[in-house]
Design a protein around this nucleic acid. Structure first.
Lengths: 233, 233
DNA sequence: GCGCTATAAAGTGTATGCACTTTTGCCATG
DNA sequence: CATGGCAAAAGTGCATACACTTTATAGCGC
């Protein structure tokens, strides 16, 4: 009983997973950060057994790196990984939009617009909140298909994309996403399915490009490149 | 040291997962079959801890159903699940083909043709072997992209598709797949990427349709229907 | 003979303990 | 002062133990 994360009746392991997932996409946990089982268990008020199991799940989702006899770490996606993740994400979210186009209820539109409103309110706040809300927008959209398997894959790939952004993107790159989300809602609600799917693809490409194109913070991990300018003297 | 599954240096948990995955796509394990932790651990020569962890992984992959305080069971996909799984599979394997078209080496073509040859040899053997080999064909193809994240998702969705087939398909529905695989190799090696991707989509659609359209073995779990012919006397 | 309940058996949820591995930090040595 | 190696500390890998939950069984009343 160290922290307030007591979800007593519920599943403690799921709580750990969700906590870490959230910390990751908000950028509170960065690639390479260590996740020792003891520390994890202690901060969530459970034994190492549960923490270990949770790490296994997160590793299966690609958010955590697990190597034998080594401390678990937050996965460090390469730019190539990020590219592949966004390609897959485009393919999956095209399907979401295809299934949804023309079938959004007024309630659903309201739910989506509410999230965008939150994004708007948070646009000058901490960087992590923006990424989290943008992610939530896409996940809620997927949930509206009522296709649990599709939801599962979209959710997973969204978290991986969020990690890639937190890891590789330059800060404040998510500004225009808000208006794009609004336009998406409109086109999904009214427009033809193919047009809407195309717009989703363009939106995701734009996010990936804005964030990953030139910012490329990953070089800062590469000692050779970092020190190259200094090696001449 | 009860069985021969000793993979000593390696990861015992991965061995359990792989064993169960294979048993599932070969149809040795059917949807609803129970997987108690003790029995599992005993048959693989490990403690319940490891077996439990393995079940967690398989649940994350959607092959196993895990409910609190209940014995784990092999997932029973509904026809709707199967439909969604194949939709996702089409989207992912299109990407595989897109990336691969025109870039297959002679060695890679040989590897693929060898698998098809094995499929040919096994076409009158046990039903499970055919599904396993067909699955292997698609997974190897994905591996040739050298995109680990794409490989991971394709592999997972292929296993889920295999489970759906074993669960829902009528027997001996995989005959034509062999010639289609050969044609696929050819078109991926030489043809334009879009054409090849379309062919992959058609191939997968055909597999799904042949297997799932009318066979619908799920009714056979329905006692009323099973016993109807016998209820008249 | 049939259904209901009490009780035992089987199974899961979780913590803890111990062996083994990796990491860390310190000290001796060149 | 830098460097190599060794010992303690930290951490993982795994099995076992025990409490609690579900499921199966057998006995009892009707």
């Amino acid at each position: 009983m160290t922290t307030g994360a007591r979800t007593v009746g519920g599943d403690r392991m799921a709580a750990i997973c969700q906590g870490i997932r959230r910390a990751i996409i908000e950028g509170a946990l960065l690639p390479g950060d260590r996740l020792p089982e003891d520390a994890l268990g202690e901060s969530f008020g459970v034994s190492r057994t549960i923490a270990r199991h949770a790490l296994g799940q997160l590793a299966a989702e690609g958010l955590v790196d697990l190597r034998r006899n080594r401390i678990a770490t937050v996965t460090a996606p390469t730019p190539a990984d990020a590219r592949d993740i966004f390609d897959i994400r485009v393919a999956l979210e095209r399907q979401v939009v295809q299934h949804l186009a023309g079938h959004l209820s007024a309630d659903q539109v309201a739910v989506l617009k509410d999230i965008v409103q939150q994004e708007h309110d948070a646009r000058h706040g901490p960087d992590g909140a923006s990424i989290r809300l943008a992610t939530e927008f896409h996940i809620r959209l997927a949930e509206m298909t009522s296709k649990p398997i599709l939801v599962r894959y979209v959710t997973e790939i969204c978290y991986r994309a969020g990690l890639s952004l937190a890891a590789l993107a330059r800060p404040h790159s998510s500004e225009c996403a808000i208006s794009e989300h609004l336009a998406l809602i409109d086109l999904i609600a009214r427009g033809p399915a193919d047009k809407a799917a195309d717009m989703m693809a363009e939106h995701l490409e734009a996010v990936a490009t804005r964030a990953l194109l030139s910012g490329d913070r990953s070089r800062s991990r590469d000692l050779v490149n970092i020190l190259q300018p200094y090696a001449k003297g």
